[in-house]
Amino acid sequence: MADSSTTTAPDMDAIQVHETGAGLFQVEIQARGARFLADEPVAFGGMGSGPDPYDLLASALGACTTMTLRLYARRKGWPLESVSVRVSHARASLNARDSFTREVIVTGDLDETQKTRLAEIADRCPVHQTLDRGADVVTHFVAPVPATQETGTGLHMRHMSEACGSERA
């Protein structure tokens, strides 16, 4: 365990999560000025006041896919009217590999070549790539520091742009 007096420079893209004191599992999440709750369902001892952590992970994949497809189609000047993504998550046991099923619906006057390319781009969204290759998690116990209201560095937007390539319409 790290020394509890250790301090680090705040990461401007860091998400702040803290217990609310309401219920056993309810937490408030602060992300670049937005605040929302996460919780466990009532059936599992929570208050059901927000998505559970796996719902948030699946939501990240759906949001990133939607945003990446929108950015790519905009750059190409394609007539993409709307994108919606439904994501489900499953895992047989704690030691089993996670499985995400992503259903993408795009509307607009797109030809088959454009739809095929959008399917390829969906697999290049940064969150999909993160899940696909795995991630390292490093944990430090540190002294409390005040929360910051900084807007971040735009890391996700930069990675999404990279996923779409430098291709322009």
Rank of each mutant, 00 (worst) to 15 (best):
D52Q: 06
R91I: 00
V138F: 10
E162P: 01
D111T: 01
Y54L: 13
A63D: 04
H128P: 11
H159M: 14
T113M: 11
Q30W: 07
V104F: 01
G134V: 02
T139D: 02
S166W: 04
Q30R: 09
E103A: 12
S88C: 07
R102W: 04
V27A: 11
S59T: 13
T153P: 04
D11S: 10
A73L: 03
D111C: 06
A73E: 04
A169P: 14
T113L: 04
M1Q: 11
L155P: 06
I121G: 02
A31M: 12
S49K: 15
D13C: 05
F36Q: 00
P51G: 15
R91P: 00
A60Q: 08
D13W: 05
G48Y: 07
M67C: 07
L155W: 12
A34G: 05
A92P: 03
L57A: 11
T6Y: 00
A92D: 14
D123I: 06
G108K: 03
C64Y: 04
C164M: 09
G154T: 02
V87D: 04
I15G: 00
P144S: 07
T6H: 04
S166K: 14
A92R: 01
T20M: 01
S59R: 02
D136I: 13
A9D: 12
A22S: 13
A31Q: 13
T148I: 12
K115S: 04
G21V: 03
S84M: 02
G77A: 09
R97M: 10
D13T: 07
M67L: 13
A73S: 05
A43D: 14
C64H: 03
A63H: 10
A135M: 12
I15F: 08
A169C: 11
P10K: 09
I29M: 05
T101S: 08
F100Y: 09
